[in-house]
């Protein structure tokens, strides 16, 4: 893998902006796409990447972000269907090597595993952490 990657992030909300700031800081080329220009205010002053305003479900917007040159795409909008669509388009139309989509609904996650789209489900992750916390709490009390 190259030292500096070309990374496209869809959605500049809490997750998107956090990823963008950190990846840009360590020297990657980052492009963030969001429909709402004001979300770019969350980018840190030293963010050196590009900002694209537009709907990522439109081909023209993805082309503007030069998605075909991307090594990595993160789909991190708050809409599951947008993330799932953009992830598939990135993988199958633009041949992006590494594609990750955030999906809130755990049931949808299963379906997209079938289509070969790698997903992260914050709901499942959080549930696991909570359950783990409960289990270790009980173990500490010696009744597990």
């Amino acid at each position: 893998m190259k030292n500096s990657l070309y990374i496209v992030i869809i959605g500049c909300g809490r997750l998107g902006s956090l990823l963008a700031n950190q990846l840009s800081r360590v020297g990657h080329s980052v492009v963030v796409i969001d429909t709402d220009e004001s979300t770019f205010d969350d980018l840190s002053p030293d963010f050196s990447g590009f900002r694209v305003v537009g709907e990522a479900t439109r081909m023209a917007v993805l082309k503007e972000a030069k998605l075909k040159n991307a090594d990595v795409l993160f789909a991190a909008t708050h809409e599951d269907n947008v993330n799932l669509m953009v992830a598939q388009v990135a993988r199958k139309v633009f041949n992006v090597q590494h594609v990750l989509a955030r999906v809130f609904d755990p049931r949808r996650e299963q379906v997209y595993d079938q289509l070969g789209i790698e997903t992260i489900c914050p709901t499942s992750v959080a549930a696991e952490m909570f359950l783990l916390a409960v289990a270790s709490d009980r173990a500490a009390r010696g009744d597990a």
């Binding site: 269907n81 669509m85 953009v86 379906v111 079938q114 289509l115």
Partner: peptide
């Protein structure tokens, strides 16, 4: 009116 919804609806219908 949303392309992303139309895609996911059709894919769910086929896959599930």
């Amino acid at each position: 009116p949303n392309d992303q919804d139309n895609l996911v609806i059709c894919q769910l219908a086929v896959l599930q």
